[in-house]
Amino acid sequence: MITLVLGGDVTVHARTTPAAALGRLNPLLEGADLRFVNVEGPVDAVTAEALKSTGIDVVSVANDAPHPPAAALASLGVLDQAGIAHCGAGANLDSAHAPAVLERSGEKVAFLAYTALRSPGQVAQPGSPGVAQAFATTAYQPDPRVAEIPGRPPVVRTAPVPEHLERLVADVRKANAAHDHVVVSMHWGLPGPEPAEYQVAYGRAAIDAGADLVAGHGSHTIQAVEVYRGRPILYGLGNLAADWPDGLLAGCMFGAEPRLELIPVRRTADNACEPLAGDEADKVLRYVAEVSALRSTKVTVQGGIASVPVGA
């Protein structure tokens, strides 16, 4: 049995005391075998120390934080120096798509990371550094009743870029063949409760290819959980230590009796992140339950913790 705790977006490099942003989460993190977050922006030694002091083992660096490839490579070096594994970016296309692999209790967990959100010049190429991409196309379909009611807004349709989807599926299949568990991190989405069509397509394709869990972030809002073929897709973990409010910590157990639990977190007045409790926690989790029910997934809320049935 391996216990994994996952958080959403982390941006602490510009804070006066970066470690203070995460310190209140230590009681929830210290018992896990593996701890994962998405880190946006450059990683300096102080940021790396903040991550390490909270016990973060592995991070995604595949996102749209606007810093040039040279700075991104420097960040990877800082993470290496700190002993924090990373995925989703590298010196070239192949290294950006390579998994971070960590072993616990004799089992290997592979982490892959991709971004659908982008800043110019950040995409990895065969001979140049950058991030692993999983982009989408956007089209606008006229509302079916636009002839009756002129001016009705169009329906927005999105779909994965075919070659990006093919590469992601190939990456997951390769990782699944070589390791015991595969976690796919996706930086994607728009603010709001609903995942876009391309998010559903990528998430389900990753599960079909052998992923045990898909963890989404990037919309800076909490989105639904979907259990697809017995495995969870977390469409939006929201914020962990970022300059926006709510987020989720997800605790997942891999093994004979898999489990998924969710605990809400919130940015405080002093710019730290702390777990919610009581009525405030239940309010956030009831929202998660409502939006997840729209994806045919039952979320049970009790005592500030949400439980999601997985593995069946």
Rank of each mutant, 00 (worst) to 15 (best):
V183Y: 00
A178R: 11
Q133E: 13
K174T: 15
A159V: 01
D180E: 14
P245I: 06
P142G: 10
R204H: 11
V131Q: 09
L248P: 06
P191Q: 03
M253L: 14
G203D: 10
R145Q: 15
P153V: 11
P264V: 02
G127Y: 10
E163I: 09
G203M: 02
D246L: 14
Q133A: 15
G189I: 07
G216S: 05
V169C: 01
G216A: 02
V214T: 02
G189S: 10
D143S: 15
Y235Q: 03
Q141R: 15
A242P: 00
V200I: 15
A205K: 09
G192E: 12
K174L: 13
Q223R: 13
A177P: 04
G238P: 04
A201Y: 05
V156T: 15
N239A: 06
A159P: 03
A215Q: 01
D212S: 13
Y202A: 04
Y198N: 10
H179M: 09
V184P: 03
R259A: 14
Y202M: 00
G192L: 05
E163Q: 13
V200Q: 12
P232L: 05
P195G: 06
G255W: 00
A170H: 09
A224Y: 04
L165H: 04
V169L: 08
R145M: 12
G255H: 00
Y140F: 15
F254A: 00
R152F: 13
E197Q: 15
T221M: 02
V155G: 01
E257H: 14
H181L: 11
P154A: 06
G127M: 10
P193F: 08
P160A: 10
D171C: 12
G130C: 01
G127W: 12
E257R: 15
A132G: 07
E226N: 11
G210Q: 03
H164E: 11
L190K: 12
E197H: 13
D208H: 05
L213D: 00
G255C: 08
P153K: 03
L240H: 03
P162F: 05
F135E: 14
Q199I: 05
S219T: 05
P191L: 06
L213R: 05
S128P: 02
A201G: 03
V182T: 11
V161S: 00
P193C: 07
A256I: 11
